[in-house]
Design a protein around this nucleic acid. Sequence first.
RNA 1: CGGAGUAUAGCUCAGCCUGGUAGAGCACCACGUUCGGGACGUGGGGGUCGUAAGUUCGAAUCUUGCUACUCCGACCA
Length: 510
Amino acid sequence: MHALKVTRAEDFPEWYQAVVREADLAEPSPTRGSMIIKPWGMGIWERIQGELDRRIKETGHDNYYFPLLIPLSFFAKEAEHVEGFAKEMAVVTHHRLKQIDGELKPDPDAELTEPLIIRPTSETIIGDAFSRWIVSYRDLPLKLNQWANVMRWEMRTRMFLRTAEFLWQEGHTAHVDEADAMDETMLALEIYRSFAEDFLALPVIAGEKPENERFPGAVRTYSIEAMMQDGKALQAGTSHYLGTHFAEAQNIRYQDRDGGKALAHTTSWGVSTRMIGGVIMTHGDDDGLRTPPAIAPRQVVIVPMLRGKPEDADLKAYCAALAAELNKESVFGSAVRAFVDMKDAKPADKRWDWVRRGAPLICEIGPRDAANGQVTFINRNALREGEKIKSHTLTRDEFVAQAAGLLETNQAELFAEAKTRLEGAIRSDLVTFADLERYYGTDENDAEFKGWARVHWSRPTGAALDAVGDRLKVLKLTIRNAPLAQPASFGVCIFTGAPAVEEILIARSY
RNA sequence: CGGAGUAUAGCUCAGCCUGGUAGAGCACCACGUUCGGGACGUGGGGGUCGUAAGUUCGAAUCUUGCUACUCCGACCA
């Protein structure tokens, strides 16, 4: 009897929805396509924010905040960029409401002279600021970051993975030349890779996106790709080298040493609340989420077995003291986050609430534990032995001394498990397109687990690349990226038979 | 935006075919019994059946429009 009604094997999308709901991560909101992020979900995002913000600042970036609303005319300047986002922009056109025939409507007399766009991303308005702030080569590099919400009017939304409004971090930088901007692009990508692996326990493959998957307006786009438990790929972060496209569109020029005028080279990079979706689909099980300890808002949850009797006072004191001792320990560079769940509810219910949320260590302390100076706990990573819940008992001193180590072990185990799955599910023996068709098949009802394929190709461009995309689309596949780590020599292109120049990852994706 | 499905209590759903004025389980509240672990008994609160219109003496039930959500696709970071 699992804590969730749906299992991953029965229906993966339903299971995902169930985890989001049952783990108290988020719920659908009355606003179309948007979600209410609940405490456990927001707590996870706050941990992601805190650590990533630290790493971003550590590498020489400062935080700024730009406005939510962007003048429409700003988008007209970069053709590819506007083409990429035009179909999903929310537009603000009025500044007043009025009762008309008993209905509250935008006041026709209060139409804005220029419509405002709710930012889908901030390149344009930040570029405008850059053009004023950058005068000399001495002003470069300019390395900015902002934490913000953005809105893209998506046709089909899914909690955390693709919502109309989402939270993210967007870095924007300007540099003297391509070499310096490319260094920055790769630095951001490496921050994401190491952050995902070290902190979220998400093994990822970093690489360059093919031409047809680039960010609108980018010269080169890089991504980190993670593998979900259904074998699909999730793009968990992106970094773009924008060349001088935005500099040209927005006149970001500087005076160089020789007194000449030159265009700045810009970059942008971001990760969003989508990462939480990746954590769910990587680490969740049929009892809910297993939250990686590094991002768990509460790492050790203590559930006192209260019985509404006078002895409860002693038990509460014991639990409070235990939490205080744990809080003095440190793990992942911060204090251990221990919490006593004093909610007036049945202990068994509280236990299952924390199991579904995925608190890494759940202590269930009864009067006998308190009397004997013991701690009885379950480890969310190894919740069951067969069908039965497995509980452990240590002395209080032992538990306090070992807690940080247990959390670190759990973090490492989650990563190792996901890494093994990732590496075991990449086929590199598919060398012809027929091999690819045979493996992925075209049967609509084929629910068998399919991982990724790592294949050689000749990097076709333009119409030839579109043709490749069409052939893959039949198999519901897309090119994810060309991993940074490439072999010394190549075979032939799986699509054209021409000599290959690169290895790429192919997968079904979110 | 196309295809399919769904919409009845906080949640999961029954009732609809064959129209007669609202049900179950879980959750919630009270009391009691339990108590090293998703306990049990008794009692109780809670729904204008997504929405609008039509047919009818009478609509959760039949008809039509609309809306929202889920899944698949298209689109997309």
